[in-house]
């Protein structure tokens, strides 16, 4: 029917970026399975997947009660040794029967939730990306808990260079005529509706995680620039407040770096509108201009003293 997921993204709670080997340890939530690391163009570490069993109501726009049983898949990622993500998704399918089957049935279908009774994909998709009623399947809560585990790793010193809220991206993917819609809700909540050609593959999850990562980077840079109060505070002070962005964020922007070829048109469409990279560039320029102007002012003052 459809696939739905939620990615939570936050600043890794450590003073500096962590090494590849530290990433492996931080993400080794499950013994016996290894963390996958890719190094180019940016170090990206992905944890093994973990399953969570669920038997609960699914969110629907019509508020009709639809029961789903099965398991959801969660994985965590660390990008550039600096940004952490918890990502949970589930394929929602119709059950062959109207009653709940033994757990062995569901365990044989990892990452699948079967819907008992009648349900429409559109109702579920709108329910999930709309305003889910309390008590429904909450993939964000699952992602958040796994992200907490990462952030609580004893390898991290918890002295992050700045405070930043996590963002959440709730997404729904369906098969059909290609389209993508990214929506900002509250300060911290975003949704994504994606229709892709061909059957679902985990590459779609990679795409959603990549979008969530870049949305978090952009949101964080906006917050840091706002906190700097450029123009309202002395230049040196504004630059000092911008410094954490220069030190920890600016080099992380690598849109679509890990997205499979056939899905890159979706990123490109978002680049046209709303234009992630355009906004990022203009912010980065603003930060760099401030730093340059402040340096110039310091040099001029220095020359004046001589």
């Amino acid at each position: 029917m459809l696939v739905m997921g939620e990615v939570q993204t936050g600043l890794l709670q450590n003073s500096g970026e962590i090494s590849e080997s530290a990433c492996r340890q931080v993400l080794g939530l499950m013994a016996g399975e290894t963390v996958r690391v890719s190094r180019r163009p940016i170090v990206h570490a992905l944890s093994p997947e973990r399953l969570t069993g669920v038997d609960c109501a699914l969110p629907t726009a019509s508020r009709s009660r639809i029961r789903g049983v099965g398991t959801v898949v969660t994985r965590c990622a660390v990008t550039g040794g600096r940004v952490a993500q918890g990502s949970t998704y589930v394929r929602v399918v119709r059950s062959e029967t109207d009653r709940r089957l033994p757990w062995s049935h569901y365990l044989a279908r990892p990452g699948v939730v079967e819907v008992l009774g009648k349900a429409k994909a559109a109702d579920l998709a709108e329910g999930f990306t709309g305003d889910p009623a309390p008590g429904c399947l909450d993939l964000g809560a699952v992602s958040g808990r796994f992200l907490d585990l990462v952030q609580a790793s004893p390898l991290l010193d918890r002295r992050a260079p700045f405070k930043m809220a996590r963002t959440s991206l709730r997404w729904v993917a369906e098969t059909g005529e290609p389209s993508i819609r990214f929506t900002l809700h509250t300060e911290r909540e975003r949704t994504l509706r994606l229709t892709h050609p061909g059957p679902f593959t985990p590459a779609v999850v990679d795409l959603c995680e990549d979008l969530a990562l870049h949305d978090w980077l952009l949101t964080s840079l906006l917050v840091i620039v706002e906190r700097a109060r450029i123009g309202a505070t002395p230049g040196a002070q504004a630059v000092a407040r911008l410094a954490p962005a220069v030190d920890h964020l600016l080099h992380l922007w690598m849109p679509a770096a890990r997205v499979e070829e056939w899905l890159t048109p979706f990123w490109e469409s978002l680049e046209r509108r709303p234009g992630f990279t355009r906004q990022w560039r203009s912010l980065v320029d603003r930060v760099r201009d401030q730093v340059a102007m402040n340096t110039l002012a310091l040099l001029t003052a220095e020359a004046g003293r001589r």
């Binding site: 936050g10 600043l11 709670q13 958040g144 808990r145 907490d148 952030q151 609580a152 918890r158 992050a160 405070k163 930043m164 809220a165 996590r166």
Partner: peptide
């Protein structure tokens, strides 16, 4: 503990 950990990520 979970609540404190999350808030501490976000608030000074």
């Amino acid at each position: 503990a979970q609540l404190f950990g999350r808030l501490e990520e976000e608030f000074d």
